[in-house]
């Protein structure tokens, strides 16, 4: 795999009108993003995630250091032919309709009219906004605005997609769809860089992450490696009887291993929510008691979102 993004000693200091340093937003950041991976930039508010993205896109000028993206310097406009960017808020033109929005952004690329038309239809389908394509964006809900924002980011079928808080403001269903879409992009060989402080979302989709704090890089690595609890093992079986559990305990004791916990695993709130919505659509007017909903992952229950128990979505 080759590096799609190379950041070397990138620093950014915001200054006041007189040029005096106000905030050090980034402090000598160095990292690479490899082709085909989903990379997460994490950190609390003001940690430098968005600043990093904006420096990469040429919206901000680094105080020092370099950032190359697809082999070109960050200020090079040509790199943008292969990039898609979804900003933190959907900074779109609210007076345009959904259709016009995609049309406008599409025309900024080297695409034929026929290509653009086809791509537009695909994206409107993908982000499920076809029904509102002729409405002005000022009439859209926040979720719809995020979705059309994503569509504009994908209009050029980019190789590298930069997503700033992609799931912010989305309801759980749209959130789930967004995460599926990100995974789908990875399947197509695209590279995705996303900033978020919604850790569960990052955990669901990212291969590698970097955690920033006050402009400093604190953690960088593979999500699985970073989250693994060393010195403990976990087994998952179908439901065990009391006897079977005792036998397992005996076998473990024979090997000098303690059984620390044996209980029914819980699902995530997101999973419960999605399943409830799905069941409600199939059985309208019904109220569900605890435990009544089908168990297992939503994916197993033929969910369009593809969420799995324990939050693990990666393929």
């Amino acid at each position: 795999m080759s590096a799609v993004i190379e950041i070397r000693n990138l620093s950014k200091i915001y200054r006041d009108f007189w040029g005096r340093p106000k905030v050090k937003a980034l402090n000598s950041l160095s990292l690479d993003v490899q082709q085909g991976e989903i990379f997460g930039l994490l950190g609390p508010n003001g940690s430098g995630k968005t600043t990093t993205l904006k420096c990469l896109l040429g919206l901000l000028f680094p105080t020092s250091g370099t950032a190359t993206i697809l082999g070109k310097p960050s200020h090079d406009v040509e790199k943008n032919e292969r990039i898609g960017y979804l900003p933190e808020e959907s900074y779109l033109y609210k007076f345009l309709t959904g259709d016009e929005t995609l049309d406008f952004y599409g025309r900024l690329f080297k695409m034929s009219a026929a290509e653009l038309k086809k791509r537009k239809e695909e994206l409107l389908d993908l982000v499920k906004i076809k029904h509102a394509r002729h409405r002005q964006l000022k009439e859209y809900s926040k979720g719809m605005t995020r979705r059309i924002g994503l569509a504009q980011a994908l209009i050029n079928d980019p190789d590298l997609i930069l997503l700033d808080e992609p799931t912010s403001g989305l309801d759980p269903i749209a959130n789930s769809q967004m995460k599926d879409l990100i995974l789908d992009l990875k399947k197509q060989g695209k590279t995705v860089v996303m900033c978020s402080h919604l850790l569960a979302d990052v955990q669901d989709v990212c291969d590698r992450i970097a955690i920033l704090h006050q402009g400093d890089l604190k953690v960088l690595g593979n999500v699985q490696d970073l989250l693994q609890t060393k010195g403990e093992s976990q087994l998952r079986t179908s439901e065990l009887s009391e006897e079977a559990l005792k036998e397992v305990q005996q076998v473990l004791a024979k090997h000098g291993v303690d059984l620390k916990e044996a209980s029914h695993p819980t699902t995530t709130l997101e999973d419960l929510f999605l399943r409830t919505v799905m069941e409600s659509e199939q059985r309208p007017g019904r109220r569900f008691e605890p435990g009544e909903l089908p168990t297992g992952s939503v994916e197993q229950a033929d969910s369009p979102t593809g969420a799995t128990e324990g939050g693990s979505r990666k393929n």
Binding site: L57, G58, L59, V77, N80, P87, L92, L108, Q152
Partner: peptide, 14 residues
């Protein structure tokens, strides 16, 4: 101010 220019200059627009 509304940052809508961000979605334009991040396209191949000079």
């Amino acid at each position: 101010k509304e940052r809508s220019i961000h979605t334009v200059v991040t396209k191949p627009v000079k």
